[in-house]
Each structure stands twice: as C-alpha cells, then as structure tokens.
Nucleic acid binder design. Sequence first.
DNA 1: CAGTGGTCTAGACCACCGA
DNA 2: CGGTGGTCTAGACCACTGG
Lengths: 253, 253
Amino acid sequence: MSTLPVFERARIADGGPAPLYLKLKRLVIDAIAQGTLADRDAIPGERDLARMLGISRVTVRKAFADLVADGVLVQRRGSGTFVAPKTGRIQLPLSRLTSFTEDMRLRGIETFSDWLDRSVALPTPEESLVLALSPGDKVIRLHRLRRADGKPLAIERSSIPHRFLPDPMAVETSLYAALTERGLKPVRALQRLHAVALSKGDADLLGLPEGSPALFTERVAYLTDGRVIEFTRSHYRGDSYDFVAELHLAAGS
Amino acid sequence: MSTLPVFERARIADGGPAPLYLKLKRLVIDAIAQGTLADRDAIPGERDLARMLGISRVTVRKAFADLVADGVLVQRRGSGTFVAPKTGRIQLPLSRLTSFTEDMRLRGIETFSDWLDRSVALPTPEESLVLALSPGDKVIRLHRLRRADGKPLAIERSSIPHRFLPDPMAVETSLYAALTERGLKPVRALQRLHAVALSKGDADLLGLPEGSPALFTERVAYLTDGRVIEFTRSHYRGDSYDFVAELHLAAGS
DNA sequence: CAGTGGTCTAGACCACCGA
DNA sequence: CGGTGGTCTAGACCACTGG
C-alpha cells in the first residue's frame, strides 16, 4: 500500500469541528473533482484507510456508505472500493434534475422574465414553517412570469428569508447568481412535483384556459449548514415543459 | 415503556438466516402495512429497542437509517423516531429506480392491478425506435390499471422486447420481479415527465372527468450492457401523486 | 433535568474474491 | 490462502429537545 497523499492523517484532523465521516466524504469528492482520483480508481481498503487517517473503520464505512448511495463510489465484496465510472454525462455530485434556465439554454432558447412581485413582506404561515423563520422575520418575494420566444412558459414564486437577501431589487435575472455573490450557495434541494389544473388567475398569466394541466413544483433549497435558503413554487405549462430525470438502481435495499 | 408486541425478541430471532437490520426493517414495514403502527406514531427509543430485541444499538440505527432514507420514518434529535406522516399524495422517488409494487409496499400501501392488455404484438414505429428493435422483432405489451384501496391511481403501459420476455403471462404482479428472475435487472433509466389533460378513455379508467390533470411519464430503462429492456408510459392522477427529487448542485459551478 | 438521536471507538466473525 | 467488504457488538461522549 502506497502513501497516497490524498489520504494523509492531517487532511482530516484539522479543518474545524465537523463529523469525521463528513470530512472524509469531502476529501474523496474533492479528490475526484480535482482529478487526483479518476474513474474506476481503487480506493484503499477500509482497514488501511482507517489506520492512515487515524479513525475507526466504522467511521470510514459510514462515509463510504453515503458515497455509494450518492453514486460516487462502488463497492465489490471481496474485491474493493472504486471510484464509480461516469455514465457519459457530467454528474459531479449526482441526481440532477434539469432546471428551467439550464434546460432552455441547452435548447438554445433565450428566456425572459416579467416580474409579478419583487418585495419585502410578512411571511405566510407556510413560509414561516418551511423557511424556519423566527417571529418578526420577513421574507423576500420574487414572483416571475417566465417567457421564451414571447410565449409564457411558467410562473415562478420564490421566497427567501429577508436576512439572507436584504434587497429584492438586487436580483436581476438569476436568483442563484445573486445568492452566490453573497456567499449563499444552495448545495442541496428537495423538490416535489405533481400535476394540477390551473386556477383562473394563473391560467390567464400563461395564456391558457382555466383548468389547463400544469406541472406544479415545490422546491426547498438548503445551504451547507442545513439552513433553508429558498422556497420556490412553480407552475409549468403542461404542453411546453418536460422534466427529465436519470434514475439509478437503489443500492441498499 | 410498554411491551409493544410489535417489537418482541422472538419477532427477529427466528425466521431464517438474514441480516438483523434487514429483519428489523421488514418488521417495521409490515407493522405499518398492517396498521399496527400508524402515521406519526412514536417508535421506541433506539436503546430501548435494542434491549427489547436483544441486538445492539448500532444495528437498530442501521435499520433506521435505511428506513429514513426510504421516507418510512423520520427522526428528530432530542425528540425521537416516528412513522413518517403521509402527505395525502403518494410520494415517488425521482432519482432511484424502484419497482412500483415494492415502493408502495414500503409505504404500507397494498396495490392491485387490473390488466388492460397483456399480449405479444407487432411494435409500433415508436416502440421499434425506442427499444432498438430489428425488423420482425415483436414486443410484449403490459398495460395495467394500478389501484390502491380500491381507488384507481395510475395507468401504466409497458413495452418489452419479446426476446427478453417470451411469455407475457409470466408477469403476475411485478414486472421487475419477472425480469430479475431471468437475470435482466434494469440498472439505469431515463424518465421524462410533464403534465397532460386526460383523454376521455384514460379519464374513464381513472374515474375522473375528461380533461383532468395528470402526470405523464415516459421511462426508458437500460441493462448494465446498455441495451434497452423496458419502455413505459404512465398516467398518474394529479391529485394522488407526488414525485420527489433530491437535487445536488455541481461543486464547480 | 433526563432522554433523545448523532457520532465514534476497538474489537469480532462471516462470505466472498482473486491470485 | 490473504485481503476484501458485510455484519455485529458493547461500550462512550456529545448536542439537542422537552418538560
């Protein structure tokens, strides 16, 4: 077994207080991102790694279990642990769902936004709950009508805790760009989606008859520390928008 | 702490050779399916449970970790472990490739199928294209009405190359089970979904008015060697289904 | 405050794989 | 055969939640 500077004791001992298995996960992900570890590369055995890093094997296994669940590593009993081969497309962390902007840009379609609301407001009970607001906290509302080729495609209603983004007018086109400038990058999100019939008001905005089918999505985005940064509800025209997802076989069960 | 016959030592000691944490998972899932455990019910503490079952706390935690990942349980630090509340809609994971039947069972929902079509047929041009069929190849059609609690939930139309599954009658309840028996396990799939208004025929099958909103999905599943094994189009009732996705943002961008 | 889940340790035995 | 991952144990300390 070689020294493998990637997995030196120091790389995990310092760096502030954080669970060891999370530090190890980050170590592996960064090494892959930087090319130090390539596709199908072998990772040292769990016992070796534990010894090298000065932690217990159980902790190594916990980190590896997460990384396998995320599709970053693959494990073969009796053989070893390896960097998962890429399936053709970029998929650094994993399971990505294409977003409005990305998807449209991919198709070479230029998109525009009309602001329906861009204000500071008192939160609704739902916003308070989802954004984990304290009493008295305010929210920023960013409601937009998304258009492409002059045709309305979607209504997007985002709420952000006021303390994260004091001025709603700071958001010009991309909410995520505005957040990133402030060092508030969402790293994880949960999205729920289902089909609904459009209300009269939303149907008018999208230029459709009342009751037309639409894809309704609710997304909650989180920062690295687990705080909720964004709550967005969107209505996509059923006839104009496709969501695409890549599914992987569940590893554990 | 009460005795809770659900979690008696005997329930996990016998029952053949299998990992203890898998036995415990099954125990919890079955209890929810049978109504012994209901929504939001508290599960005994990890230490209590370990003592009651005569296993270690780490093993209990491993089982619980899986169940939390599957959305069956929720855990709150300092508070306890609880049966995940049902959200009114059935939640389907968008990033994991799962069997409908198994996924519903995991949530304690018993499902039934009415066959609409189960035959060998000549492929449509679309089927030929998607399944990469050679001229003369036939397909198996498996069209089903999915029901739960007597209520129609979804229409599912699967096409499988005839050479993979000679006899359509071999599929009793789970298509994936039938495929797996033949060593044909899908490992990856691409799924497209959008909102549609139901046609008269489909609306009738689902017991809804014509034009009701539904989630339409098209899924193409692949074997490890990249061959297409399955092409499935489904219509899910808009009022009964949530698709849930966990999104990760690329580290670089 | 007592009880909870979250993390971590240092062992152990097993089934499997490849040389 | 030795090395691998897969499972399991019996402890321990921490941060958090609730009454």
